[in-house]
Structures are given as structure tokens and as C-alpha cells.
């Protein structure tokens, strides 16, 4: 008996490592978390009672605090995503169309540089910059613009700033990668037909670059809404975001079932965000 492998068979077999990886490190942990979300923590012990109590607690516990935490998370994340796009798009545009090719590589390295710093260190650095005796407050004092030191840290503003600093760079890369794929002939054709620079941008460049914006915005949304470190360090617990509420259940209370239920709700939000932006997500364009 002879075994014969067709190209299609080999292609199917080639998928197995990816399937195995996804099963082991995504599907199984997710299933475990889902199962845990139906358990109960009673007298310090976790019992699988297949209850919906943890999901009900999301709406009822502590006077609706968890719902408010989700709303806070959405507000902060959406604000950070929009601001990041507003910072990143002009930067990517200049990089793609205004900077000579020989300087692009250096500028790209400069853009990536902040990623090489530890996330925690970067957040604490911002806290020092924004503190009452930080550089911003001291400069404003020296210029006579304020009479008393002003502290900008430990606030929603600081959290959003921390997110924008990090994610604007990520968005710049995804948008830049998209912009340089747009053929020059499209823009030249529009110009030949009488469009001015603004019209070329508005009717040609911007629509064609939206997949890059969408991918970057989606990544920013997913990473920011699940982030615990930045709001914890820069937000000063002035308000609670959902990842902080989740950590509160684990770190202090070891209430893994409730933490799992809250995590599943967070995952649901991310899934909705994915479905909303799915039409625009064309990874091959980035």
C-alpha cells in the first residue's frame, strides 16, 4: 500500500501546529476561564455550581460599580484611541509623503524607540513629569503662568496621556504601512483631473488608508481596554476601570469566579468591537 500526499493534504497538515498552538494557549485557557465564571467562591473555596451569580453581580454588586467601571473603561479607551489617531495620522502622512526615503528608516527607528522602554518605567516616568514638582509644573511656575505648583498626575487625563504616548506610535506604524502601499498613480491621476492637494487627500488618500487606521484603532482599543498598569499607575485610583476591578477580585480576594465573569464581559466588549470594525480590518493592507 502506498501513501500519497497531495498538495492539499500537505497544506492541511501544515495548519496543525497553528491549530495546536491556538487550542493550547487560547481555546483551552478561554474555556477554563468560562467554566470558572460559572463557579462560586464560598468560605474561601471555589465550587463549580454552574451559577450565573457572577454575571448578575456585574450589574448588582456594590451599587452598580462594575457597570460604571466598564463605562469608564470605554470612555477612556475611546478617547485614547481617537486622540492617538489624531496624533498618528499626520505623523504617518509626513513620514510617507514628505520625508525623503533615506531619512525614513531613522525616523521609523525613532518612532519604535519608546516601545523599547519598559511599560511600567514609562508610566512612572510620566507620573514624575506630571507631578507637582515635575517639569511641567516647574516650567509653568518659572514662566509665571501659575502661582502654585499644579499636579496633573493621578487623573484620567494622565491615564489617557499615557495611552496616547504608547499607542500613537503603534498607530503611526500601521497607518504608515498602509499609506506607502497606495500607488502614486492614483494621487497623480486625481491631480491631473484637477483636484487640489486637499481634494486628493480627502477623496483618494484618506479612503484608501482607512484599513490601516482601522487595524491600528482596533489594536489600540483592544490593548487599552484590557490594560491594568497605565490606569493603576497614572490614574491614581481616582476612578475604577474594569481591569482594575478584575485585579481587585484576584489580588485581594482570590475571587477567581467573579474575576473570570468580569473578564468574559470584557472579552465580549472586545468581540463586539471586532465585529463592528471587521469590515474595515484588512490585515493584508497593513
Amino acid at each position: 500500500m502506498r501513501f500519497h500526499f497531495s498538495r492539499a493534504d500537505l497544506r492541511d497538515w501544515g495548519l496543525w501546529p497553528a491549530v495546536l498552538w491556538t487550542t493550547l494557549f487560547f481555546a483551552l485557557p478561554l474555556a477554563a476561564m468560562l467554566a470558572m465564571s460559572f463557579a462560586e467562591r464560598v468560605a474561601g473555596k471555589i465550587t463549580f455550581t454552574w451559577t450565573l451569580a457572577n454575571y448578575a453581580a456585574f450589574f448588582t454588586r456594590a451599587g452598580g460599580t462594575f457597570v460604571q467601571a466598564l463605562i469608564n473603561s470605554l470612555e477612556v479607551t475611546i478617547l485614547a484611541t481617537i486622540l492617538s489617531i489624531l496624533v498618528a495620522y499626520p505623523l504617518a502622512y509626513i513620514l510617507a509623503y514628505r520625508v525623503p526615503a533615506k531619512w525614513r528608516r531613522i525616523l521609523l527607528v525613532l518612532i519604535v524607540l519608546p516601545f523599547w522602554t519598559s511599560y511600567v518605567i514609562r508610566s512612572y516616568s510620566w507620573l514624575l513629569v506630571l507631578s507637582q514638582n515635575g517639569i511641567i509644573s516647574q516650567t509653568l511656575l518659572d514662566l509665571g503662568l501659575i502661582a502654585q505648583p499644579v499636579g496633573l498626575g493621578n487623573s484620567r487625563f494622565a491615564t489617557v496621556l499615557g495611552f496616547v504616548h504608547f499607542f500613537a506610535m503603534l498607530l503611526t506604524l500601521t497607518i504608515f504601512a498602509n499609506l506607502i502601499q497606495i500607488k502614486d498613480s492614483y494621487r497623480r491621476a486625481a491631480a491631473d483631473l484637477g483636484a487640489n492637494n486637499w481634494q486628493v487627500f480627502w477623496h483618494v488618500t484618506l479612503p484608501l488608508s482607512l484599513p490601516g487606521v482601522a487595524v491600528g484603532a482596533f489594536l489600540t482599543f483592544v490593548l487599552a481596554i484590557g490594560d491594568y498598569i497605565t490606569p493603576q499607575i497614572l490614574g491614581g485610583n481616582r476612578e475604577l476601570l474594569l481591569p482594575q476591578a478584575i485585579m481587585l477580585q484576584i489580588g485581594r480576594q482570590a475571587d477567581f469566579p467573579l474575576a473570570s465573569a468580569l473578564s468574559m464581559i470584557l472579552m465580549l466588549v472586545v468581540t463586539v468591537a471586532f465585529l463592528v470594525s471587521a469590515k474595515r480590518l484588512k490585515m493584508e493592507r497593513v
Binding site: 454588586r61 460599580t65 460604571q68 485610583n237 476612578e239 482594575q244 481587585l248
Partner: peptide
């Protein structure tokens, strides 16, 4: 107590 604390944080 945890419930009170969560309200305080929020």
C-alpha cells in the same frame, strides 16, 4: 467591606 471599598474606589 469589599463592597464598601469598591464603592469608595469608584
Amino acid at each position: 467591606m469589599q463592597e464598601v471599598w469598591t464603592q469608595f474606589l469608584q
